[in-house]
Design a protein around this nucleic acid. Structure first.
Length: 533
DNA sequence: GTAGGGTTAG
């Protein structure tokens, strides 16, 4: 009897059919078969795959007799519920409570947890235990070792494990290609794919998306085109969504639109991943209307859809629209996540909605039980300081559980200067000096603050530091998309072909701004340091 | 019961 129940349970697991799975469990209990054969372990695995981790854990804890299969099932369940740390902390009880030894399935699951957590030390310990175990030649475990080392930043070790695999399959190849590509080792990644006899859509996706993650955007596009020429069929939308991300990062509306038409041609427009990345792409490429159209065209929007449009609107300075969409989102019953709040506080920051931003931060912690990270504190700090709430900003700075980086210090410092709080400016500047400075623009802000307080010895000290570190400021530039071409303008550039037209336009704009009440602030201008600003 | 590729973040 219990054999006939295994198949439907496995079907529920693979198709994520939660309620039929529960019904089957109820029937199994009624028949008194819940301790029969493979049924207990299959139930754990079914609950894990359906995302019901609590039910899986309860079954596991209440089992009178656990075996390595039960352990592999619960460890995998934790990984699939995004709780790899629970898997690692449970594992020692396999020895102490159950007197069992890990098998190859258990090793593979645990290495997966390490990869997700960047836990290199534990990964190395498991590697040693694996080598001493009777399973030391298992090739699935070796593939997970390759992945673990690559994800923990040790790509060369990943390579040496890969070389010990005697019969490599497409999965082991793809794992290493992805590792090289994500670490930015372009030529090794490409060479590996070319050495691979049976490259498939998976390996190409790993290559292209890894290169996009490491910033090799143009190469990624060339490889994508090569893949199409090779005749690899695009049978799922994964690679298209990464290519959309690349268009967004290149700020190229032209490329983004082309990829969008390819999406339509191949029929993947209903994929949520695709629509979500299109929202972001259109927003980053300045077409906020197309971003909104994409968003409203989605039938079942998820948190990422809502978050993407909120962030996009915030970046376009449309704070009110972003905030009112947030209200719509909550009333639709979608719970915001950490990223949503970054977008919301960011929106407030750009229009000076201080108390709204403060309330949102509070509701994030109190209503949604989300842990604010460095980005949230940075946004909130930015909100206070840009709006001139310098005391709140300084209090936050002193009470937050994170170390902010130099750019954030510099931004706060320039706000002290802008709002004329000389004492706080000096206090903060002294702290920044102690922490050490690397970025040329930070030196400039520091020098401005000290100069504003007539502290000439400190100004001289900053100058000396700049000279001794051979600081050179990279000239700022902006980039204008002219359809087929890009035009790059450097600050201080005086040899452009359209120089005369540009200067006339600039003069007109300047006069118009002054007519509307703009008073230029020249107190920031730094003389005699050889900077072209 | 185990291993590979995808979206949002100053």
């Amino acid at each position: 009897m219990h054999h006939q129940l295994l198949q439907p349970l496995r079907l529920c697991a693979s198709r994520r059919l939660t309620s039929p799975g529960k019904t089957l469990h109820a029937n199994i209990l009624k028949l008194g078969l819940d301790r029969y054969g493979a049924l207990p372990n299959t139930l754990i695995s079914m609950y894990g795959k359906c995302g019901l981790i609590k039910d899986a854990v309860q079954l596991f804890d209440e089992m009178p007799q656990r075996d390595p299969v039960s352990w592999a099932s619960i460890l995998t369940a934790y990984n699939q519920s995004n709780l790899p740390n629970h898997a690692l902390s449970l594992f020692p009880f396999m020895f102490t409570r159950d007197s069992l030894q890990p098998d190859h399935f258990v090793f593979a699951s645990l290495l997966n947890s390490c990869a997700a957590l960047n836990a290199l030390r534990i990964g190395q310990q498991l590697h040693a235990q694996f080598m001493l175990s009777p399973f030391s030649s298992d090739e699935v475990v070796k593939s997970s070792l390759v992945d673990m080392y690559a994800k923990c930043g040790s790509v060369d070790t990943a390579r040496s494990v890969f070389d010990t695999i005697s019969s490599k399959n497409p999965i082991s190849w793809t794992t290493l290609i992805s590792g090289y590509a994500r670490s930015g080792r372009k030529s090794e990644a490409v060479d590996l794919l070319r050495d691979m006899k049976e490259s498939d859509l998976f390996s190409w996706t790993a290559l292209v998306s890894g290169l996009i993650q490491s910033g090799h955007l143009i190469s990624a596009f060339h490889l994508f085109i090569e893949m199409r020429k090779e005749g690899i069929k695009i049978i799922d939308p994964f690679i298209l969504s990464t290519i959309i991300v690349a268009s967004a990062n290149l700020s190229s509306l032209e490329l983004g639109k082309q990829v969008h038409s390819l999406v339509l041609k191949l029929g993947f427009q209903s994929s949520l991943y695709i629509s979500n990345s299109l929202i972001d792409m259109y927003a980053k490429c300045s077409d906020i209307i197309a971003a909104k159209t994409t968003f409203h065209g989605i039938l079942t929007k998820d948190v990422v859809s809502w978050t993407s449009i909120i962030v996009g609107l915030a970046q376009h300075g449309r704070a009110q629209e972003a905030l009112s969409l947030y209200d719509d989102m909550v009333s639709t019953g979608i719970k915001p996540n950490e990223v949503t709040f970054i977008g919301l506080i960011y929106a407030c920051s750009h229009v000076g909605l201080v108390s709204k931003g403060r309330d949102l931060f509070k509701s994030m912690v109190e209503c949604y039980k989300l842990n604010p990270n460095l980005h949230h504190y940075t946004c909130l700090l930015d909100l206070y300081s840009r709006s001139g709430y310098l005391d709140e900003a300084e209090n936050l700075l002193n009470s937050m559980p994170f170390e902010i980086d130099e750019a954030v210090w510099a931004s706060f410092l320039s706000c002290c200067k802008r709002f004329g709080n000389t004492q706080m400016g000096i206090r903060v500047a002294d702290r920044v000096m102690e922490l050490g400075v690397k970025d040329p623009s930070t030196f400039i802000v520091l020098s401005n603050v000290y100069a504003g307080a007539f502290m000439w010895e400190k100004v001289a000290k900053v100058r000396k530091m700049m000279v001794s570190m051979d600081v050179k400021k990279e000239p700022g530039y902006s980039c204008v998309d002219l359809g087929r071409e890009n035009e790059v303008f450097y600050a201080g550039e005086m040899c452009h072909v359209m120089k005369d037209e540009i200067l006339v336009l600039l003069k007109d704009l300047d006069e118009e701004m002054r007519r509307r009440g703009y008073v230029p602030d020249v107190s920031f201008v730094l003389h005699g340091l050889g900077f072209k600003e």
